[in-house]
Design a protein around this nucleic acid. Structure first.
Length: 274
DNA sequence: ACAATTACCTGTATGC
DNA sequence: TGCATACAGGTAATTG
């Protein structure tokens, strides 16, 4: 569910609440969420650690802890990390509770149980899932149009598939992939190597603009997504094609089409996107 | 290299 | 009302 703009919004809403707080204790109700280390170790190590900061890499949340530890969380489809008062009722599908010093908990809630977390030393983040293999951050200054051109060169993969590949760029998912291609006027089935320089520069600009707009609007809430404070996003009101099958394209009025690519619903306007 | 399918889960929407 | 089916923002593993 959450893509880069949503995870970034969670990060921004949690950071001021968590930084400097000590974790008193941890309760895990769904052991399979914890990938590493063993459950007793997970709870034992976390007790007494202080949270020193919160970062994001792709769709991963990185919670920095004292003594060189790092808690890595991936929300997958329906995961939520919520900063809530300790006296708030424990909602359904609450799988982990971090009891913090003071009045609040950090709770991990996940209806579909796809999310997971790793606790590692902060020099061993290669231990956690696909984190080490992530491509560049789409919004970082290090990504230039020239670099994007080099990444696309010689690839026969279709653009929709490529944008979903976390090793290509980190953090783009099904909604923003469709929105980026619509903004860039590129058909989802175009192959990477077929883009000319003008199209690459347009793609570069649209990747950054679309993701930045998602962050500005505090993420897209279709059904489940909320930020660290439980607030829904607003970007669903600004979507060009995603979820708009049969409705008029905002640019040309022709009905938006839906197809299936890489097993995912893919929306596009066949008049605007070539 | 690239594409397509399945699995992991629960909940919701749709059609009959 | 019940029941079956399809689908949902992600990723990893498997097969072709």
């Amino acid at each position: 569910m959450p893509e880069l703009p949503e995870v970034e919004t969670v990060k921004r809403t949690l950071e001021p609440c968590l930084s400097g707080k000590t974790i008193d204790s941890v309760s895990v109700f769904m052991p399979k969420i914890i990938q590493e280390p063993a459950l007793e170790q997970f709870e034992l190590i976390l007790a007494g650690k202080k949270i020193t900061g919160v970062d994001r890499r792709g769709k991963y949340l990185l919670i920095n802890l004292s003594e060189g530890y790092l808690l890595i969380v991936h929300l997958r489809m329906t995961g939520r990390l919520l900063y809530v008062r300790k006296d708030a009722p424990v909602e359904k599908h609450t799988h982990v509770i971090f009891s913090l010093e003071g009045s609040h908990d950090l709770r991990f809630v996940d209806q579909r149980q796809f999310g997971w977390m790793y606790l590692v030393r902060n020099n061993q983040l290669n231990k956690a899932g696909g984190l080490a293999g992530l491509g560049p951050e789409p919004l970082s200054p290090e990504l230039t149009p020239e670099m994007l051109a080099a990444m696309l060169a010689g690839k026969n993969t279709k653009m929709k598939t490529l944008l979903l590949d976390q090793r290509f760029l980190a953090g783009i998912g099904n909604i923003y992939a469709d929105e980026i291609l619509f903004a860039a006027k590129l058909h989802p089935q175009r192959t990477a190597s077929s883009l000319d320089q003008v199209e690459i520069e347009r793609l570069y600009r649209c990747i950054r603009e679309v993701l930045a707009a998602g962050i500005r609007n505090r993420g897209t809430t279709i059904r489940d997504y909320v930020d660290g404070g439980g607030q829904i996003g607003e970007h669903q009101h600004h979507l060009g094609v995603y979820g708009r099958e049969g409705r008029a394209c905002k640019d040309c009025g022709q009905p938006v089409e839906r197809m299936r690519m890489s097993g995912r619903s893919t929306f596009h306007c066949s008049r605007c996107q070539n």
